[in-house]
Design a protein around this nucleic acid. Structure first.
Length: 360
DNA sequence: GTGGTAGGCGACTTGGTGGA
DNA sequence: TCCACCAAGTCGCCTACCAC
């Protein structure tokens, strides 16, 4: 079987067309050494005529660099990661890098496969939102080797590399404190964790039990929730804490279970905007009104939270800036080599809208 | 300023050799 | 004949060096 694909023009082709040697053509195209203006123009014209494009594969062989970044995100459908990816691609292009994207659905096995695939493609570095911040052996091997890694949205203390996050605990504590200030005492938290954790949290029968959490984000947001409740004198801080498993438990079902309790919560804190959708779905299904019957607060300022009625009060993260900062940290690490790992923490802001009211 | 040449990058294929 | 193993060659490009 023969290929219909025409052979791409190479430097020898351009040199022949321009009537110069390969050396001169190469010098003129790459902009090094000395080339007369006339020869440079002839080479340029020949390259344009032949549609010459430098072979990046061949160039990568020499330089050892592909100018490609691998990005491993947890949930491509989540508006948070859509915004983060926008920040990543903009910052990468500005720095002269292309991006290869992989989605893991918060699954550790899928993450390991994605990391392997991207490394096989010889990306210059990886931005990873890890499905687990405790099981990071596959990333540790890279950090110790030749592929720099920057963690995004989550950080793993055992992994000596850069991480870019927000102050999840502080932001969560602040959000719950605002519900307490509005008079609430029965405040629920609904969250999801990855599907394969290796520590039991992914088991079906343990799904609604509080912790352990495989992701630092979950640990910190729950810690902030508990801290705020403790500070308000609430003894059983886990009575209204519900932890589901990504793709197994529906946040709406978890919320419905909470609303079935003899003393149901008067407020719900959803740890991301997708979970908030599930919470609202369950609230609507029961004919309850926000905020008259139940107050709702979400982590993430997704666009829809500003459009629905009532508009949701949220913890806003600098979503695009998270991605851009991760790329900047990664490019610095690629281009300047080893330096002590940094944990960059960006600020959040609580946005008060219409979904908080005193308890009924 | 220019031309010619050699070496090297990494993954893969091809061909030669030796042993079972 | 089959298999395993190894060396050499392939691809396109960059770079250094020397000669003119």
């Amino acid at each position: 079987m023969t290929s219909n694909r025409r052979r791409a023009a190479t430097i020898p082709d351009v040199a022949r067309e321009a009537g110069v040697s390969r050396s001169t053509a190469s010098r003129a195209l790459a902009g090094y050494g000395s080339v007369s203006p006339e020869a440079r123009e002839r080479v340029r014209a020949a390259a344009e005529k032949l549609g010459y494009r430098a072979n990046q594969l061949a160039r990568s062989m020499i330089t050892g660099r592909t100018h490609t970044l691998g990005v491993v995100i947890a949930d491509i459908q989540n508006p948070f990661f859509a915004g983060v990816t926008r920040g990543i691609t903009d910052a990468a292009h500005a720095a002269g890098y292309q991006v290869l994207l992989a989605n893991t659905d918060e699954d550790l096995g899928a993450e390991r496969a994605a990391v392997k695939t991207l490394c096989d493609k010889h990306v210059d570095g990886l931005v990873v939102a890890p499905a687990s911040t405790t099981e990071v052996g596959h990333l540790a091997a890279l950090v110790e080797g030749v592929c720099p890694v920057v963690l995004l949205d989550r950080h793993a203390p055992a992994l000596p590399t850069d991480a870019v996050t927000v102050d999840n605990q502080g932001a969560s504590e602040d959000a719950v404190r605002r519900l307490i200030a509005a008079g609430h005492r029965r405040i629920a938290l609904v969250t999801l964790v990855g599907s394969e954790t290796g520590n039991g949290a992914g088991a079906e029968d343990e799904a609604s039990a509080p912790g352990p959490f495989p992701i630092s984000t979950g640990v910190e947001r729950v810690a902030g929730y508990r801290a705020a409740l403790r500070a308000a004198g609430v003894e059983d801080t886990d009575a209204y804490l519900r932890v589901g498993t990504f793709h197994r438990q529906d946040p709406a079902a978890l919320t419905d279970e909470l609303l079935s309790l003899p003393e149901p919560p008067t407020a719900v804190f959803a740890t991301d905007s997708m979970i908030a959708l599930g919470v609202l779905s369950a609230v609507n299904a029961r004919g309850l009104r926000v905020p008259d019957d139940i107050s709702v607060v979400a982590f993430d300022d997704a666009e829809w939270t500003r459009v629905v009625r009532p508009r949701l009060s949220v913890v806003a993260q600098p979503v695009q800036e998270l991605g851009a900062e991760a790329v900047r940290a990664l490019v610095t690490r690629i281009e300047t080599g080893a330096r002590p790992p940094r944990h960059i923490t960006l600020d959040t802001a609580f946005i008060t809208r219409d979904s908080i009211a005193p308890p009924p």
